[in-house]
Amino acid sequence: MARYESLIDALGDTPLVGLPSFSPAPHVRLWAKLEDRNPTGSIKDRPALRMIQQAEAEGRLTPGCTILEPTSGNTGISLAMAAKLKGYELVCVMPENTSAERRQLLEMYGARIIFSPAAGGSNQAVATAKEIAAQHPDWVMLYQYGNPGNALAHYEGTGPEILRDMPTITHFVAGLGTTGTLVGTGRYLREHKPDCQIIAAEPRYGELVYGLRNIAEGFVPELYDPDVLTGRYSVGAYDALRRTRQLVEQEGIFAGISSGAILHAALGQAEKAAGGGDEADIVMVVCDGGWKYLSTGAYTGTLEEAAEALEGQLWA
């Protein structure tokens, strides 16, 4: 049955598709969970809707309320759609160096955007949102970095869907931002498949983004649980773009740039597994489609030009 009462109800149950052209050996297979097939086109619909439902159930969120959230884009877009349907106001705190499409989508859904300085990245957006929350005690900050509902959405949704569709899973690879996807999905998978590898891919930004920050300021999301992870990759813009383009060229999957970074990590694991000889089913997340990143130049010109264009931008 594929009929739903409203867009919000059409969440999850996303397809898992094979990536045969990336397989380095017959016994090592890669699979992509297409999270762009969610209501607003990203994996963030899962935590956003879950956090809203939880706040409603607790009575913290009632019609007419204002929601405040630090977000680099996708969570904001998910919240903005739900806020529109449910009658909430939304204020997003977003780094000023995110793509134009994300801004336009948020504005189209009626959200207000407060920009935080580019140099501070997502960490600065979090700090700014916390300051604003203190000034507006009547606003509801769902706070995706620390809200257990974020990880629970994946523990109860993403994880069970993956295990149902790929009972022989050996590796799960996803992006590391709020850490909700990896912690929630990873916890569920490890409970059912204790040997399943849980691999994080995080973006490595140039010094234009990190340069002004002190190395002691590293922000660790409250949701983060290092015991769930078994591996962690840091992927630069060049490799993320290269893999993003390979996804289109080899498998026809038009994904966002962070999915390219995740594929890069998945291929690193695939290479290791190919040398080992054991059967491997590596499941990676496609977080969103490429539409929101067209203006960044990610899909045109040479890789060098595209990587240079991304310098100083938050691409994941």
Partner: peptide
């Protein structure tokens, strides 16, 4: 081999 100062989110 890439050496980086530990700043990214989630760094211990």
């Amino acid at each position: 081999v890439t050496i980086l100062p530990a700043v990214a989110g989630g760094a211990r």
